[in-house]
Nucleic acid binder design. Structure first.
Lengths: 168, 168
DNA sequence: TTTTATTTTCAATAATACTTGAAAGTTTAG
DNA sequence: CTAAACTTTCAAGTATTATTGAAAATAAAA
C-alpha cells in the first residue's frame, strides 16, 4: 500500500473508532492527521487536508487542546499558530483515561452516592432489587476509579508497574 | 430520597452514561429499568414505564439481547414474552467488554495490520512518522486485546485473578 | 492610528441518528 | 381454517448533533 492511501485509511479508521466511543468524528480525524504529521500544521493546512471549514477546524483544534492531546506552537517570526500532537501513544491513552474519568466517571459516582441514600423496606422486592443494583454498580465504579488512579500514577508500586509493563 | 424518584434518576443517569459511550440512550434506559425490576417485564410494560413506542421497545429489547445483557423468558400458560436483565454487574461489565472487543477492537486490529504493510523510505519523515504511530498503536491495541482476553478468562491465573479481585 | 493577518464566534444549514405508528408477519387457540 | 394475541418491520417524521461561512474580534505590522 502507498503512503498516501495508508494516511487516508488511518484517518478514516481513527475517525470511525472515535465516533464509536462518543468522540466527534472530525476531532478524531484531526487528531489522526496530526499524529502522522512530522511537522506541526496550521489551521489552514488542517482545513485543506480534511476538507473542513475554518470554523470547524478552529473549534476542533481547541477541543483537542482541552483534551490535552495536542498543543499550540509558534514559529519565530511567524504570526500563524501551529498545532502538533503528542506522539507518545501511551500518553494519549493516559490522557483519554484521565479526561473520561473526570468528565464521566466522577459525575456518575456522585449520582450513585446519592442513589445509595434511598431508604426502603428490605422486604420490598422492588426496593431490594434497586438497592442491590445501585450498590453493586457503586462498588464497581469506585474500584474502577481507584484502579484508574493507580494506573495513572503507575510506576510507584512494584505490583502495578509490572501490570503496566504487560499492557504497555 | 423516595424509591420512585431514585428509579427515575437511575434510569436517567444510566441513559446519559450510555450515550457518552456511544450506546443508544434508550437502550441504556431499558437496561436500567430491567436492572432494577425484580420481575421480568413485557414489551408493553417497558413501553409504559419509559413512554416509548412499540417499535422502539421491540428493537431496543432485541439489541439488548444481542449484547447479551438481557434474556427472553416465557411464563407457562402465557403467550407474551418477558424480559429480564442479568443482575450480576460483573457479568454486565464482562459482556460489554466482550462485545466492544468483538465489534470495535478486532476490526481496528485488522486495519492496523494492513496499515503496517505500508512501505517507504526510512529517511522520509512523513513515512517515518506515519509508521511510528501505526506501529505504536498496533502494539498498544494488541496488548489491550490480549489483556481483555486474559481478564475475561480470569480466574485461571493466580496473578490475574488477584488483579481482578481488587477491581471487582 | 490604520491596515492587514489571523483567530473566534454563532446563527443558519446540513447531516446523522433516533423514534414513531401503522401495516404486515407470526403464532397459538378455538 | 379463522380470529385473536402478540411481535416485527420499516418508511416517514422528529430530534439531536455537527458543520458551514461570513461577520466580529483580536493582535501584530506599517
Amino acid at each position: 500500500m502507498e503512503l498516501a492511501e495508508g494516511k487516508q485509511k488511518f484517518i478514516e479508521a481513527w475517525g470511525r473508532i472515535g465516533s464509536e466511543w462518543g468522540i466527534n468524528r472530525t476531532m478524531a480525524q484531526v487528531h489522526a492527521l496530526l499524529l502522522i504529521s512530522p511537522e506541526a500544521l496550521t489551521t489552514e493546512e488542517v482545513m485543506e487536508e480534511l476538507n473542513i471549514s475554518r470554523g470547524n477546524a478552529n473549534m476542533t483544534l481547541r477541543d483537542l487542546i482541552n483534551w490535552g492531546l495536542i498543543e499550540k506552537q509558534h514559529k519565530p517570526g511567524e504570526r500563524k499558530e501551529y498545532f502538533a500532537a503528542d506522539k507518545d501513544i501511551w500518553n494519549v491513552a493516559r490522557q483519554v483515561a484521565k479526561e473520561r474519568k473526570k468528565r464521566e466517571l466522577e459525575p456518575m459516582l456522585k449520582v450513585l452516592k446519592e442513589l445509595s441514600t434511598v431508604e426502603g423496606d428490605k422486604n420490598d422486592r422492588a426496593y431490594a432489587t434497586f438497592n442491590k443494583s445501585v450498590t453493586d454498580i457503586n462498588k464497581l465504579a469506585n474500584n474502577a476509579d481507584r484502579m484508574i488512579d493507580t494506573m495513572l500514577k503507575a510506576e510507584e508500586s512494584w505490583f502495578w508497574s509490572s501490570v503496566l509493563k504487560i499492557f504497555k
